[in-house]
């Protein structure tokens, strides 16, 4: 590919220091390096506990990175997440990097439609356009229309999950991090998520994902990266 990658990890290492356990250090992985281009979907693989989710959380600035660089290119600027200020990361999260997990952090008393549209409104989209886009994604994900105007606190787990997925896809992030968005979805909704991912790729979005479901992984992945190769415990 000739284009510059929009996301580049180099020599990224993560370890957790457990001060309450006598300060022991738990190394997770070392020297992870990969780059993701616009329109490409890279899938992280490896057994549970190997650090796949940690990598996504480090890209999102949710976990700290002990060593290495995570450089995000957005329009004309480059930001290294590892050394960025809280304020820079907040701006990136609003405009550049989306993160979708299977868990919705419920915001009390805000309707499902407003939660979903909120991500696009934060990016400066007109409220009625954002709501129309939100309605369209919610209906594609088979969230019944009678629920749209209710806060999702009382929804079933699956419905909350789909509200969360809808929120991530309604906004226009150049980079999207997907942490098992299809876990525990039924086949029909899983197929919708695959479609949504394909549409994002076609629109030039760079995606890093974790999918336990092999069918989904095979459908969306352009490349896979086995995190086991970087694992510290496996090498020892």
């Amino acid at each position: 590919m000739i284009t510059e990658p929009v996301l580049r990890l180099s020599d990224v290492s993560k370890s957790f220091t457990m001060h309450l356990r006598g300060g022991i250090s738990l190394p997770v992985f070392e020297d992870v390096a990969f780059a993701v281009h616009a329109g490409e979907c890279v899938v992280l693989t490896g057994p549970s506990g190997i650090g796949k989710s940690s990598i996504l959380k480090m890209i999102y600035g949710n976990y700290r990175t002990q060593k290495g660089n995570i450089v995000v290119k957005s329009q004309l600027t480059e930001t290294d997440i590892v050394s960025a200020s809280a304020r820079e990361i907040m701006t990136l999260r609003r405009n550049t990097i989306g993160y979708i997990s299977q868990f919705l952090r419920v915001i009390p008393r805000i309707s499902a439609l407003d939660i979903v549209a909120g991500a696009a409104v934060e990016q400066g989209r007109d409220k009625s356009l954002a709501q129309a886009a939100a309605a369209s994604v919610l209906s594609r994900l088979n969230v019944p229309e009678k629920l749209w105007h209710l806060p999702p606190a009382t929804f079933s787990g699956g419905e909350q999950q789909r509200v969360n997925i809808a929120r991530g896809f309604v906004a226009e992030y150049p980079i999207l991090l997907l942490d098992e968005p299809t876990a525990s979805l039924d086949a029909a909704n899983r197929a919708v998520v695959v479609e949504l991912i394909e549409e994002k790729k076609a629109a030039g979005c760079a995606i890093v994902g974790i999918f336990h479901d092999a069918d989904v992984r095979d459908e969306v992945a352009d490349r896979t990266i086995d995190v086991t190769e970087y694992s510290v415990s496996a090498a020892a």
Binding site: F16, K57, G61, N62, Y63, R64, A86, I89, M90
Partner: peptide, 10 residues
């Protein structure tokens, strides 16, 4: 100090 979710999660 840091982002709230970062300080609480890591």
């Amino acid at each position: 100090s840091g982002l709230t979710d970062q300080v609480l999660d890591d």
